[in-house]
């Protein structure tokens, strides 16, 4: 828990406890996010690399997450959701992520003789720091620069993390709100199904 210096303001709030109030389509969307079907794009090795990378980039989020990040990303890749190009690039997000995961392993093996997901935390952090500032081994990261890979993969991971109902509960976000909507308006007024307001005077 030492890695979690700051805690949620809403320790007892659980968005999912209200799921029966949501419309059927949204319920289904959330169900298949929490219980994703197998995708077909990421190899088992890529999934391990991605998992290890996510742990390095978002250490404490992962302890709080209920989603399988790798499964959701694989599902999104399989559904062709990542065919657009990131800004400044002429390759799809899919190609950038798949190649980047492979290059990570190549460089980890070249440098440490071990795949990335088997390295200790310190070595992983060192490599990630180097890659993020575009210092990847140029003979490996020629097709996709390591900084482009990191900005692309981080953006995708962030979207998935903040689409996780467990994280919504942590930040006190009301989540899906159809068909019931919001009715209580005015300062300090919230609908009774939302997170209960916590102590005032935060700042």
């Amino acid at each position: 828990m030492d890695k979690h210096p700051k805690r949620t303001h809403y320790p007892t709030y659980d968005v999912m406890s209200e799921k029966n109030e949501w419309d059927p389509v949204t319920q289904q969307v959330l169900f298949s996010r929490i219980h994703p079907s197998e995708g077909s794009i990421l190899t088992p090795d890529m999934k391990r690399t991605l998992q290890a990378l996510a742990k390095t980039l978002f250490p404490s989020h992962l302890g709080e997450q209920t989603l399988s990040l790798t499964m959701v990303l694989d599902q999104r890749l399989t559904a062709k959701k990542l065919k657009a190009f990131p800004k400044g690039a002429n390759l799809s997000k899919e190609v950038i992520i798949l190649k980047g995961l492979t290059f990570m392993e190549q460089e980890a093996i070249t440098e440490h003789g071990k795949t990335f997901y088997l390295l200790d935390e310190k070595k992983r952090n060192e490599l990630v720091r180097k890659w993020r500032s575009s210092d990847g081994d140029p003979s490996i990261w020629a097709e996709v620069h390591s900084d482009l890979f990191f900005s692309t993969v981080s953006a995708e991971i962030v979207k998935i993390i903040y689409s996780d109902p467990a994280i919504w509960s942590d930040i006190g976000y009301g989540g899906p709100a159809f068909p019931r909507g919001y009715y209580a308006f005015g300062p300090h007024q919230f609908d009774e199904w939302e997170a209960k307001p916590h102590g005032e005077n935060l700042i």
């Binding site: 890695k3 303001h9 953006a155 962030v158 979207k159 903040y162 994280i167 930040i171």
Partner: peptide
């Protein structure tokens, strides 16, 4: 909503990942 805000945080500040992102987003409300 959270995905949009978190994505804009990252887009505007590449150091806003991991613990930095978590610290900011805990104050979302």
């Amino acid at each position: 909503r959270p995905v949009r805000l978190a994505s804009l945080f990252l887009e505007n500040d590449e150091t806003c990942i991991g613990e930095n992102m978590r610290m900011r987003m805990l104050d979302y409300n």
